[in-house]
Structures are given as structure tokens and as C-alpha cells.
Design a protein around this nucleic acid. Sequence first.
DNA 1: TCGAATTATTTGACAGCATCAATTATTGCT
DNA 2: AGCAATAATTGATGCTGTCAAATAATTCGA
Lengths: 396, 396
Amino acid sequence: MIATGTGEDARLTLRTPASVDIFTRILTHGPIGRIDVGRQTGLSQAAVTKTVAPLLLDGIVAVDRPLAGTVPAGAAPGRPVHPLRVVPSARLVLGVKVNPDEVIGVATGMTAGILHVVRRPLASTSPAAVIGAVASVAEELGLLLGDRASRLIGLGVAVSGDVDTATGIVRDSPLLGWRGVPLAHPLAARLGVPVRVDNDVRALTIAEHWFGVGRDSGSFAVVTIGSGIGCGLYLNDDVVSGAHGVAGELGHLPLASLDAVCVCGRRGCVEAVASSGAVLRAVRAATDAPLLTLAEAAGLAREGVPGAVAAFDRAGTAIGAALAIVANLTGPDTVLVAGEGMQEFELYERTIRTTFAAHAFGAAADCVLVTRAHTFEDWARGAAASLIRAAVRQEF
Amino acid sequence: MIATGTGEDARLTLRTPASVDIFTRILTHGPIGRIDVGRQTGLSQAAVTKTVAPLLLDGIVAVDRPLAGTVPAGAAPGRPVHPLRVVPSARLVLGVKVNPDEVIGVATGMTAGILHVVRRPLASTSPAAVIGAVASVAEELGLLLGDRASRLIGLGVAVSGDVDTATGIVRDSPLLGWRGVPLAHPLAARLGVPVRVDNDVRALTIAEHWFGVGRDSGSFAVVTIGSGIGCGLYLNDDVVSGAHGVAGELGHLPLASLDAVCVCGRRGCVEAVASSGAVLRAVRAATDAPLLTLAEAAGLAREGVPGAVAAFDRAGTAIGAALAIVANLTGPDTVLVAGEGMQEFELYERTIRTTFAAHAFGAAADCVLVTRAHTFEDWARGAAASLIRAAVRQEF
DNA sequence: TCGAATTATTTGACAGCATCAATTATTGCT
DNA sequence: AGCAATAATTGATGCTGTCAAATAATTCGA
């Protein structure tokens, strides 16, 4: 149990679809005036006023001081906007990312801003061990929150693989060696808060769409480059889950002229060339240097060591081709290329953009590529975002 | 002008989103009882009764004779279901597909069943010539319909390329050599009915999702194999249009170990190996036979001529890989592989399935592949389906 | 300093729509 | 014929979003 007290009044109540839309708009696009909320949701101003009233009472939405006079010259006359925004600390959320060797948890507010971080190494990936670690991380975060834990609305858990968010069961996770492991129920029973389990890339995509670069995009993709390579899609204003729980498998597509054999046993996979491990191996092989980290390999490439430069170029080419596939097939307006803990994007970026441009067809070439380094905590933040979205959409 | 009479009462009026859902359910899944409609739309039975009442009066929905007694043994007791269905002939629709050398038009009912077909060769692809040909085909179809033309709800036009359906402007169509050609307005002005212009593959995808194999799928893809190779996506119960008007570009992805140079100048494109033209060229080159048609090339392959067999196998491999990309990335439960006028699927099919299985990752392998031959008229039927969908969804 | 113009927000009457629960309809089985 | 079971209808009810008018808060000019 985390929330020893009531915890009941932490629930978000947004009865109608319209109020969900209104609240979502304020959450993701606030501070914002009521008229703009109405325009952007297709509802009347009156509906906004009436929906927001109880939320103001609850304290989850606040009105900023009208910014009169602050806009100095040539400002339009008239009553100034009373900007609405969601109060981040009005509700709290936990997000936990499960890695094979470690569990990382964060506590965040309503806008997925990180308040606390707790990490715990994992000796085994057995369901019992993982559930224990996740629960203990959550409980520690609960202690860190103190009194505020009564405002907790739930726990999001991000796991790699095929996850059924509706039942909270991990159907298949090759990375953890799991098949059909129920995760949400045992955790919810132990912690006493709603638990949502989601695929890690999907969760990250939700975070970026609601709180990151995808905020104004109705058609958005996230490509993650790390030890594996994945892809999350947000199309038609909804996250793509795949009929069988998985979508966005990008690392093992049969791509052009990639000769390296992948861990999956096939040739031509992007992961076999562009995953952090693959780049590291390629640089090691080409330079005979006893490298330990990717940062060291990047150092060699920056110095211009040919083998290292070639390895990064090959990776960039593969990534660029993969991005072109995503853009051509799904037509997003924005693609975020994110790598965990990577400061090495400048080494890839030119190659990525060149290859992408060479393979993007027609209007797909108009797609904006955004590259960004990620921290490990961002995955846990994604888990929190997935729970926030579920809570806002009244899915539990 | 097609509808010389009123034509006004041909409009579909479905005031609320709920009634749109109810009507759509009856249209795509009828004959169906009221209770099932309620269950499947998440609405109450009462809502179904009340929504359907005016539609019965209008005549666009009919009640089949209750099938009492027809279910002989062990049938559940109780009042029998009064199955609802949409009356196909209650409204009529025109669909026209624009090819570079020909315009094909069909007249259909509400369920996109083809009533008449009109073809007209095209001497030029200039906008004026195409608009003239489309209009004349539509007018001829109007004459074929006679009195019934007053029940016409509109004209759908399917064009290859980047189409803005909201404005009816063809933004970019390499095949026709068009850029920014307004198509809907001039046609609507001349014909006096609503006109909807859509991308051809997208239109076909709508037809298959509403009236074909995708009916029970919320996550569905269509891959078209013909002179070009395309892909349409229906995810999260909505057709994917792409932020810039195009999605589903599949023919020019950089795929593994395809050496042939494509018309687009790149290597590795599926189209360079698997389009009907590419197969034909490959068989010609390998056998020195003076082949004219793909059917003749298929004949050689069936006889076991090595070069011909190899060409079809290479095409099947490329198609299978392309399907795996679609399945891995978007996770549909069903993919329809459709080729225009092709009876040669048996030659590819084994290779397609083998390659697909080899590259489909995890749950994506559960995706059901359906292969089917297409006629040229099916494209025009797709155009009609796109208009039907727009009309039902009250988009004009 | 005042008032006109302008824009934002609130208010209350109103209408539409879906639900609920009770009623009616129609069958199979005994 | 009567009972059990399922389907469809009906009318009262309540909620919710819209509309149009009123109110609020500002800038600008006289």
C-alpha cells in the first residue's frame, strides 16, 4: 500500500468525452484561454466555461493572472485572456520502466515533470523478482512524496514487448523472457492504486505526443535508437497499438545492402548495424582499440579514425533508411529520433538526413526530423505519461 | 448536370455521431438485429430503435422478415430477430478511377455493388481532358440509371498521388503529371452533385474495409500489386491519410538484396522487381521469348521454364518482405494482397508467405494474409466507396 | 477622466438525445 | 394454453452542449 490515507479523491472525474477533450487540451496546450480551447476542440466557449468550473474548484486547473498590459504596443483592445492551465502538483503519478538488469522509477506531476527518481538493480528477470522490485521502487517513491502520496492517481509500468494494456498482462517479452505474465493485478493489489502496463515505446510516444515535440502533430512517430531499435506511431490522433499488441517493429526489417548478421539470425536488420552494441562492435573490430563505451567510440570518430567514422556512417545510413520507411508508409508530419543517453547525434545526423532525403518519396520528404538525446529516466516518464493518458481518458 | 430533377432528397441525414455509427453498422454488417447493433456500437437498444425509425420511413433501411422457425433444432426461444439492412438501391453512387490512358466509371448502390460500367480512353492527361472525360463518363452513367439518377448522392473520383480530399485538389500526381489541380469543384459545378476526390489506394482500402475482407478488422492493410505497388492502412478504425496527404508508399522502400534499378533511379525498390512490368521484363530477358502479356509469362512459369520461375520467385520474395514491413510496423490483423486482373497469385503465393513468415516478428506473424485478384473496375468501386463513406459521415 | 470600441467570459433558457425501466411482441417448449 | 425466453418499443427523465444575451475587463482617443 502506498496511499495509506483516503486516496479516493485523487481520481480524475471527467464525465463526458467533451470534458475529456477540454481537459486534455488544457493539459497539453496550456496556459490557454477558454475561447482557444473551444476553437481547438470544436466546442462552444460556454461548454468550456461549464466544464472548467468544477475543475477549478477541484484545484486541478488554475487560472493564471490575465496578462493585461504585458503585451505593450499595438495590442488588440478588449478583455484580456484568462489563461487556463493544469496544476502539475494537483495529482501525482508514478512511472516505472523495467529493464532486464534494472528497474527505474520516477514520480511526476500531471504534466509528467519528474520530481523524484529511484533505481533498483535487478538480479533476476523472473516475474516475482520484477514485481517485487517494481513494488518496492513504487513504495520508496511513495515515501519520498510523503503527504502528497494521497494525491497519487496510479502507477504506469513500461515493459518491452507485446503488452495488453486492457488486462495488464505481458503477452510476450523476449527481452525479459516472459510469456503471459500478469503484471497489473498483482501490483495493484499490493500497492492499492490503479496500475497501467504498457509497451515501452508506445508509452514514450504518448509522452512525446502529449508533453514533447509531438504536441501539435496529429500524425507523429518516435524512433528509438539504443540497444534495440523501435518505433512508436501516433496516427489519426491515436496511438497505434497493433491488432496483436505490437506495432512499430523497426529493428528487424529486411533493409537494403546491410550485410551484417543480426542477433535475430537474419541479415539486413537495422539493429545489426545501428544499435549501440552494433556500432560499438564495429568500431572495436575496425580499430583494434579496447573500447568499453560508446562515448569512447564516438571520440575516435570525432578524431577522424577511419574505421570508427565508417561504423557511425553505416549506422546513420541504416537509420536514415529506416526513417524513410516509416515516413513513406505512415506519412507523419514529425518524426522524433531519440537515443538513450546519446550525445553522439552529431556523428550520425548528416548521414541520417542525407539517406532519409534520398529515400523519402514525394510529400513524405516534408516530414520534419527532430533528433534528441534521451535519458534512461525518460522511459519511466513515458510510463507515467501512459497512466496519465489513461486516467484522463477515464479508462479506469 | 446529371440529376435533372430534384436530387435534393437524395441526401443522407444522420444528425448525430451515434446515428452515423448505427447506420454504418447496419450498412457494413447487416442484416443485423437491433440488439446486436446496440452492443456493437456501445449504444442502448432504445437508441437503435429511435435512430432507425426515420431511416425505415425514408426507405434506406429495411427490415427483413424475422427468421422464425428457420433455425430448426435447439434454437433459443423468444421473439425472433428482425434483421435490419440497408437497401442498396435506395441511393445511388458513381465512382470513377482515372488512369493515365483510360477513365473507368461505375454506378453502384449503397453497398458499392456495381450496376453499370463505362470506360473511356484518354488521349491526354491534361486536367481539362481528364475533367471532360470524367464528366462525360458520369453523364453516361446517369443516362444508364434513367429515373433512378434522382437518387444519386454523388461522385467519387480516385486518382493516384497526393490528394487533398477536403478541398478536392490533387496536390501532386507524378503518374498524371499534375500539381495542384482542382478536380472536385469543376466536376461538381458541371454535374450538380457532390464530388469527392480521393487517393486511389486509400479509396480501395475504404471499400475493402467497409464492404470487403476488412469488415471485422479494426486494423487492416491493403497492398496492391500492379503496374505500381501501393499500400493502404486502416488503423484505429480510421483510414490513414498521412499528414501531407500521402501514406502507404511501399513501392520504393530500400529493401534487402534487390539489385535491380528502379524507374525511380534507386536500387532496392520492391517495384523494380515485383511490379507487373518488372516481372514481364525479367521473364523476357531470361527466356528470350517475345512475350506480350503477363499471362503468357505466367504460362511459361507454370510450365517450369527456369528463368520465368525465378522471376516470379524474386517478385514473391520482394512482396513478402514488403508485407512483413507493413505488418511489423503497423500491426494489422489482416492484410489483403490484391492485384489488378491477376490470376497469377498461385505463382507468387508460396514465396510470399514463406518470405513473410521469415521476416514477420513476434505477434506480427499472426497477421492473416489474404490474396485476391482484382478487376480494373474495383478501383472505380473504391472511389464510390470513398464517397459513400463521406456521405454517411456527413462530410458534405 | 470618460466613454466608445473591442474582446473574453459567464449566464440561463432551451432543445436534443441517449438511457432507463417498464411494457409489449413473438417465438419455443411442455 | 401457459410459461420461459428473447426482441423491440415506449415514455419519462436527466444530462449536456448550444445559443444569444449579458457582463467583465481592457485599449484607445478625446
